[in-house]
Write a protein that binds this DNA or RNA. Structure first.
Lengths: 194, 194
DNA sequence: CTCTAATCTGACCGATCGGTCAGCGACTGC
DNA sequence: GCAGTCGCTGACCGATCGGTCAGATTAGAG
């Protein structure tokens, strides 16, 4: 047992490094359009090394998305309870927007490529979570207009972040964007009870 | 010159048939994930026949998207003029929603796969049109919240239609969906002047 | 009938894909 | 010193991709 138990190897963890790079490239160019060779080149490794750390290309995608999907699952549990309570919906909106902001790249992949990659288990799991969140509202929203309103609020907020080019990072104004998203989505959600 | 000049060959026009099938498969499974062989099989032709009618796979995509992009371009011309006029904005919303409904598959491809396929000229053209429509509003909407509001309205409406599974065609309730979309988007657009 | 053009196809091509495998050097515990 | 594990790599594999090409089939014009 050395005196430095955990060891500061975190800095150059190849697996974590590959997950980040793969997530960026999958989001920017698409999963099928991104080859393992391109990921390896971008990371400074060989293609064989990538497949040493990850069983397959699909496994690399799943591990890269895992944190976001896990957070989404936890978010789902807290959603079902608070969907019916009006005052708790504002907290729901804040959490929803923060989730999108924190896992922006993963959200990009799930939203834009989820339908195409439906044969990948984790991708389908994430989409089921999203559907479930929607349904926890929908059960109380029988009319088409109410369902469209909720759809525009959630899908619109997600897509505003997702559609923006990577160059439009606007790191400084992220708080401003967050506040605006919360305001507009809250307004749409509030308009459901009418 | 026979007495029937144009000839009723429209029914079995191979090119048009291939455009329709390719558009469906590109939208459902993605452009890169759909091979020319799969398109040929679905249409009942050989892969060589597809490449006889279309110079390349990319040309097939562009010709399949052409009608939608052309309509989008015409829509852009009428948009710039009416963006500044409040009472004309309601007409803008109706046209926007109808455009999405009419070219649902093409919109699906452009929205979800446009960033990935940015090397295809027509795809970039369509995205420039969309950006231009947004900017014709944005120039008068300096605050972040106003821009987010418009983004949620347009992107949300587009994505509500695009995200729905093909099985959720709801042919009967299309008018109901159309009306709900127009209402909610109009409400968000109207809220810009505040 | 013949000639020609349009339509369609199978065989084939080079490139690239995801994935396997044997082996390389470096580090570690004994 | 030595055996064994770990991280990594190049060579290689079968499959599939988009695309080319020569030729078979068909139909219409003269």
């Amino acid at each position: 047992m050395p005196s430095i138990p955990p060891a500061p190897r975190v800095q150059t963890d190849a697996s974590a490094e590959l997950r980040v790079i793969a997530l960026q490239m999958f989001a920017e160019h698409g999963y099928t359009a991104t080859s393992l060779q391109q990921i390896a080149d971008a990371a400074g490794y060989s293609k064989s090394s990538v497949l040493y750390h990850f069983r397959s290309k699909e496994a690399l995608l799943e591990e890269a998305l895992a944190p976001a999907v896990q957070t989404l699952g936890a978010f789902l549990d807290s959603t079902v309870a608070r969907a019916s309570s009006d005052e708790l919906r504002s907290a729901f909106v804040v959490e929803f927007v923060d989730l999108l902001l924190e896992h922006r790249l993963a959200a990009h992949i799930i939203i834009n490529q989820g339908q195409t990659l439906s044969d990948i288990p984790m991708m389908d799991e994430a989409r089921r979570y999203i559907d479930c969140i929607g349904e926890s509202f929908m059960s109380e929203l029988p009319t088409t207009k109410q369902r469209i309103r909720l759809g525009i609020a959630l899908a619109g907020a997600a897509y505003v972040l997702v559609a923006s080019r990577p160059s439009v990072a606007d790191i400084e104004s992220v708080d401003e964007v967050r506040e605006a998203l919360v305001d507009v989505v809250s307004e749409l959600i509030a308009g459901l009870n009418r």
